[in-house]
Computed example of a mutant assay.
Amino acid sequence: MKRKFPLHGAGLLVLGLVLTSCGDDNGNGEELSLTLAYDQPQDSSYGIMADEFADTLYELSDGTIEVGQYPGGSLGDEPETIEDARAGSIDLVFASMGNISTAVPEAAVFSLHYLYEDEDHLMAGTTDPQVWEIFADMVSESAGDLHGLGVTTAGFRSTYATEPIEDMGDLEGVRFRIQPSTTEEEYWGAYGALPTTVDFSELYTALQTGAVDGAENTPAFYQIAQHHEVATYLSLTQHIGNQIGSVISQDTWESLSEEQQEWVTEAFHAGAEAGADAALEANDVALDELQEAGVEVLEPDVSEMQDIALGLTDEEAEALGEYAQEVVEMTRSLVE
């Protein structure tokens, strides 16, 4: 099923742009090469999104703008590439909202637990044009050296561990890997776990050696990273909609002509739609393949986690700021 994304708005893509001088001062007619960094493999939904973005931008620009992709964390992990985009050494970055929040704290609102009731609600909260506009505003206010392009999703994140997690009590004392976010720390601490930050590139080894006991991600990324080899229990907590943002270096953005900015925005729209469709399908396929590979897929009792999370939502949103509160209100209104 096709997901309808707004043609305008902002998000967390960081584009690394190199200009080849052959045009006027406004960038018209220039041939551009943009650097795009993301920390997932190119055969993941991130890569599908990046390919669609690059192909669409090349077509819209009549071949004058190309995108050089740097997948798999080859230019650093997400927080590092976001900082490089702020410095202007990378043009474009795809990153999870949890990591975007290291530069734009209010982006952590997209990682509030149990904010979305089901997949339809998740998609409505991802594609709503007002949500994109709020995201753009929070990026501009918190990180003036970045420009937000838009928001997409990789589906729901769930919990995986070296021992089964069937209810909140099983999280007590578990060394649990989280993204670097005070919001995440609040939630997992409230569930009884011991929140621990580990770079995604180091997580396999951390699980293998017992440095951490569990982590969370979508089924597809759990499979792609081969974490199921060392953490064989997947609990479908579906606690977070795995929202992905797109940001572009403000220096890069301002170097583009108005027409080129429109091309970039439209291209991200196409990439966001393709990436979301691919991600949701990949999660379904991954669940079947993981079970065939011997992973025990559990449907835990999440009622206690939901009660704690819903009790924290307004408090966390208020602490994050006005834009975060707007996102929560807008998201709730989509199911009323």
Results as ranks from 00 to 15, higher is better:
155 G>D: 07
325 Q>K: 13
26 N>C: 12
27 G>Y: 04
154 A>T: 07
46 Y>M: 11
33 S>V: 14
80 E>R: 15
96 S>F: 08
99 N>C: 05
271 G>S: 10
286 A>L: 12
128 D>Q: 03
111 S>P: 06
301 D>C: 08
248 I>F: 09
170 D>A: 13
18 V>D: 07
135 F>W: 09
29 G>H: 04
143 A>W: 06
331 T>E: 07
248 I>M: 15
250 Q>N: 12
3 R>K: 09
311 G>T: 03
25 D>F: 11
175 R>C: 03
320 L>Q: 05
283 N>T: 08
216 E>G: 14
71 P>T: 07
244 I>R: 12
18 V>S: 13
162 T>P: 14
133 E>F: 00
67 V>I: 12
111 S>M: 14
264 V>C: 03
271 G>L: 06
215 A>L: 03
231 A>G: 04
1 M>R: 11
20 T>S: 15
194 L>P: 02
242 N>T: 06
195 P>S: 01
258 E>K: 01
107 A>H: 07
113 H>M: 15
295 V>Y: 14
53 F>L: 15
107 A>V: 03
120 D>N: 13
33 S>A: 10
100 I>K: 05
282 A>R: 08
173 G>W: 05
52 E>C: 07
227 H>K: 11
195 P>K: 00
39 D>P: 14
121 H>W: 03
206 A>F: 08
243 Q>H: 15
33 S>W: 05
329 E>L: 04
262 E>R: 13
197 T>M: 13
335 V>D: 04
315 E>D: 11
251 D>I: 06
65 I>H: 02
109 V>M: 10
15 L>D: 07
92 L>N: 09
184 E>C: 10
133 E>C: 00
137 D>F: 01
196 T>G: 02
212 V>I: 09
24 D>S: 12
184 E>A: 12
5 F>V: 05
39 D>W: 06
115 L>N: 09
180 P>H: 02
254 E>T: 04
191 Y>L: 10
169 G>H: 14
264 V>G: 00
97 M>C: 14
189 G>Y: 04
156 F>Q: 07
251 D>L: 08
231 A>S: 13
108 A>S: 15
130 Q>N: 05
32 L>K: 08
332 R>P: 10
178 I>V: 11
164 P>G: 00
129 P>A: 01
275 G>Q: 09
132 W>G: 00
130 Q>S: 10
209 T>S: 15
297 V>Q: 11
161 A>I: 06
